[in-house]
């Protein structure tokens, strides 16, 4: 594979610096944010590279689990941070982690032990990228589902209460919110599947091609990962929608939006 040297990266960095300078005249804050985000990205990816290098050198189940757990916790934090309306931190973490673990974690385990079967099954070269791709994508879907349901609950509180007052249970009264949240989340998944290979070459496949892999092998991996991403996102969104709708009501099935704080 053609190696990317440090001067090449610095040259690419100069491009960002140049557009930031252009942006600076229009909107100073955005220019500063762009530079800061670029710096963060470079540092984060370098650290990840070092961690992966160490993991690949010493294959051990505990270290893979530890990195996996850390990734889950960070994804859970990201989900919470993207919510306009947030409940208590315990419920928020539980919702995020349960949605992520039932989707991404279980599917990663299934992929490693049944579909791909590397030797050993927790081989970090496979386990970490698979988990990362599933977590990254389902995290977005879960965050969108939660956000849409909660925003919908605040906007349509009067409708939900009318339905409760007319004798519907909480599940039925919030059915519209649940469907709306899932629809929002699935738009991204469906677009990703429909556009793959036509509008864009997915990142993983591009990476493999650049690394010199056979295109059909790269395509097979990409199809597998897209199917897994879609499944993990749907599972995660379904779990998130269920938990989010339950959190809207108290134990007497009354709308309990007072437990949420607005971070909009």
């Amino acid at each position: 594979m053609h190696d990317i040297t440090l001067p090449v990266l610095m040259l690419a960095g100069l491009l960002i610096a140049a557009v930031s300078a252009l942006l600076y005249r229009q909107h100073r804050r955005s220019a500063r944010q762009l530079l800061w985000a670029t710096l963060r990205m470079a540092v984060q990816l370098t650290l990840v590279g070092l961690v992966l290098q160490a993991l690949f050198a010493h294959t051990a189940l505990w270290s893979v689990c530890l990195v996996g757990l850390l990734m889950m916790l960070l994804a859970g934090h990201e989900i919470r941070a993207r919510q306009r309306y947030r409940g208590g931190w315990r419920g928020e973490w539980l919702t995020g982690l349960l949605s992520l673990s039932l989707g991404s974690m279980l599917l990663t385990l299934l992929t490693l032990t049944v579909l791909v079967q590397p030797e050993p099954w927790y081989q970090p070269r496979y386990a970490i990228p698979f988990l990362g791709m599933l977590l990254g994508n389902s995290m977005t879907g879960i965050a969108m589902t939660l956000n849409r349901i909660r925003e919908g609950a605040f906007q349509q509180a009067a409708i939900v209460e009318t339905r409760l007052a007319l004798g519907e249970d909480a599940r039925s009264a919030s059915a519209g919110l649940r469907a709306d949240g899932l629809r929002q989340s699935l738009i991204g998944v469906i677009n990703m599947l429909a556009a793959a290979g036509v509008v864009s070459l997915p990142g993983m496949m591009t990476g493999q091609l650049l690394a010199g892999a056979d295109p059909l092998t790269a395509v097979r991996y990409q199809i597998l990962i897209l199917l897994l991403i879609a499944t993990a996102t749907v599972i995660g969104s379904l779990v998130a929608a269920e938990l989010a709708c339950r959190q809207l009501f108290d134990n007497r099935q009354r709308l309990a939006l007072g437990t949420f704080t607005d971070h909009g």
Partner: peptide, 19 residues
């Protein structure tokens, strides 16, 4: 259950909502 109760004691709000 709250649903059993609300099917007997029905509240009709001043502001009506439709879905």
């Amino acid at each position: 259950t709250p649903v059993q109760w609300r099917r007997q004691v029905v509240y009709c709000s001043t502001e009506n909502h439709w879905w």
